[in-house]
């Protein structure tokens, strides 16, 4: 049974230096308070898999020196433009980048979910995305005739980490329609979740809620972090804090500004 951790740091204890961590895209429940806690702890050499894209979360972790390898399809700040620390890190070669395309990440995690070693995917052939991924292979469709198709090895993360609206006392987590969170948890060896609140009712007992619930069976630890997605959105709960994101982009334009941002918004804990 998942552990309701007394503190966020204790829930995150299994996320260690060098581990492969999968996190969701910018609108599906990004665990920002947990991300700040990992930066405060000084985590190093993460292999971050952002399913399938990222914004502030990847940029913050890169700027804070927490990332060894980044595997994703794109990082940007949406309407606020390029992700400054991501861009700087690629140009100065300070992280290892595994460029992917969105459905390839979904499919490679689905392979792990099914316990199979690879997944085929259409597209990709003739692209430089494929050319720069020696771990991806082209084979002839064994059921077809002269039909090349790409095989993607399964991605099996050490940890899946996301933020969700609520969990019950058995550790079942309500994720609503964010189906990729199920795939992440199914594929990863362990799953850590931060939630807005804990409810007393059994989420699996209600057939309507059950359809959008990740069973506690897959969950290793849970921490309650109200507004744990801030300044990004939590679907159906709160929108992104656009003024803050604009402020972030201004700070992160330079290494000095980024350091000031970290000091102000990450190392100095926000009043709850």
């Amino acid at each position: 049974m998942p552990r309701l951790a007394p503190t966020l740091d204790e829930a995150l204890a299994c996320i260690t230096d060098g581990c492969m961590l999968v996190v969701p895209r910018e609108v599906s429940g990004v665990p920002m308070e947990a991300t700040r806690a990992l930066i405060r702890r000084g985590i190093k050499r993460l292999h971050l898999v952002a399913l399938p894209t990222s914004s502030l979360q990847a940029d913050l972790l890169i700027g804070a020196g927490c990332i060894g390898t980044l595997e994703t399809s794109a990082v940007n700040m949406g309407e606020f433009g390029p992700a400054p620390r991501f861009t700087a890190a690629i140009l100065s070669n300070t992280i290892s980048m595994k460029d992917a395309t969105c459905p390839a990440l979904h499919a490679a995690l689905q392979a792990s979910e099914k316990g199979v070693p690879f997944m085929p995917l259409r597209g990709l052939i003739g692209s430089d995305v494929l050319a720069h991924r020696p771990d991806w292979h082209v084979i002839g469709n064994p059921f077809g005739d002269d039909d090349p198709i790409v095989l993607l090895p399964a991605i099996r993360p050490d940890i899946a980490l996301f933020h969700a609206p609520m969990a019950d006392r058995s550790g079942n987590v309500w994720i609503g329609a964010q189906g990729e969170l199920l795939t992440m948890a199914h594929a990863a060896a362990k799953t850590v979740v931060t939630v807005e609140k804990i409810v007393d009712d059994d989420l699996l007992a209600d057939p309507v809620l059950r359809a959008g619930t990740l069973p506690g069976f897959y969950v290793d630890s849970i921490a309650v972090t109200p507004r744990g997605g801030w300044p990004l959105s939590l679907p159906d709960h709160y929108p992104a804090d656009d003024a803050h994101l604009a402020e972030y982009v201004r700070f992160a334009a330079t290494p000095e500004g980024f350091a000031t941002y970290l000091e102000r918004y990450v190392h100095e804990r926000r009043a709850a």
Partner: peptide, 21 residues
């Protein structure tokens, strides 16, 4: 050059698949 780029954009998103299908 991909390994020593002069400028970097966000990334390919779903293009490497959707453009084909």
């Amino acid at each position: 050059d991909y390994d020593q780029p002069k400028a970097r954009f966000p990334g390919s998103f779903g293009s490497s698949y959707l453009y084909y299908v």
